[in-house]
Design a binder for these strands. Structure first.
Lengths: 211, 211
DNA sequence: ATTTGTAGCTATCGAATGATTACAAGTGTG
DNA sequence: CACACTTGTAATCATTCGATAGCTACAAAT
């Protein structure tokens, strides 16, 4: 009376197994994308699990709580941002540093959800835990620009302001309107003089995934 | 066997009744504050109802859905923003117009949740309904600055960028760190050269309300 | 071959939330 | 006063979601 359950067909022959450490990174990366798109409350652990190709309970068990997962996503995003800026600064400070860091910032858009999950954290100041982490993260970037990059307060302000505008336009998916609205076109071109094609490509990629 | 319920003490002797039109405005204003603090998904209709001093089912019945309520909040916020800018433009275009509109923008922080609910809408581009409304609203402001205020694309970009930075700092409640963190102090001062005291006062008011 | 730990899933629970229904209390009008 | 309409609430319903429990399967070491 062997089982009728078709389990002995050697399922998932493609993927043998994975070390939990690797799976962890995979889930965090997927979570960055989902949190970036739908926000902390809007994103569900089930969406994240599906995006990572695992079951929802597995996400819960690996990270304990959704909040903890978000904090790890935030840390990953911040770490990547700081690393990118630091690398650019290491290439030498000079009059063109702001432009170079700006380009490095825009290139981070390639990492799905990185800047957007950051932005989502930045408007959660009312949350006691995430708000605190978000403030600390923002200030970490501010200090990096002031101290290591050598920007003065007004340069730093201008740089961060532009970053927040870029985040907002991407979060709004303004690129969706690019082809149909001439105002959106100019608006995007003004905010991203060089990296326009990158954002448009990103928008196309984004649209290729439904909720 | 008359009821033990102390209902016959003529409750709410202070407020007789209110016309639903007035109640409507009241709820929308309260919703702007709650949505601004917790975002679309994070805010509950019950929180909003309590903030407005009515029952949760009343909110549902008056607006149909939470989504519809958010759209009305968005429209109200946008309307106030556009009105404020238009009024400033009507006072005459000139070399100081950008500064005057900037001050008008910062003054909108006095209207609880106005700019924050806008910001919340701006990072909901993935939502089919709210995202579309958010994009339209953002572009409406962009066009106002370009056409009516007479800004060129780069001036408009710089202005909006600074606005997004202000929204972010307020959304992060950076003012919470003002007294304890000298970096936060400089950061806020750089972003809001004149209106610093306004933001600090706002932060104090915000902290006076718990979740 | 057996043991032992790790990776991962199915099933399910309890709390929260948005919406609906049914009813009560006020308000105006003949 | 009666009657209809409006304002508002309490009770409750149906879902959704995050978390937990408990199991299965695989792999490495013994």
């Amino acid at each position: 009376m062997s089982s009728v359950i078709p389990h002995d067909v050697k399922h998932h022959e493609t993927q043998p197994r994975m070390k939990s450490e690797d799976r962890r990174e995979l889930i965090i990366a997927a979570a960055a994308g989902v949190f970036g798109d739908y926000g902390y409350f809007g994103a569900t652990t089930d969406q994240i699990a599906k995006a990572a190709g695992v079951s929802q309970p597995y996400v819960s068990r690996m990270f304990g709580t959704k909040e903890q997962l978000f904090l790890e996503v935030l840390e990953r995003s911040l770490g990547a941002l700081v690393a990118a800026f630091t690398a650019e600064i290491a290439r030498g400070t000079g009059p063109d540093l702001m432009q170079r860091i700006g380009r490095a910032y825009a290139d981070l858009l390639n990492d799905r959800g990185l800047l957007l999950s950051l932005m989502q954290a930045f408007i959660m100041g009312s949350d006691p835990v995430i708000g605190k982490a978000g403030r600390a993260g923002f200030l970490r970037v501010y200090e990096l620009l002031r101290n290591d990059a050598g920007f003065d307060p007004d340069e730093t302000r201008a740089f961060l302001a532009n970053g927040m505008l870029i985040n907002t336009l991407v979060g709004l998916r303004m690129s969706d309107e690019y082809e149909t609205n001439i105002v959106a076109e100019e608006c995007l071109a003004a905010a991203l003089p060089e990296k326009l094609d990158l954002v448009l490509e990103l928008g196309r990629r984004q649209r290729a995934e439904a909720r």
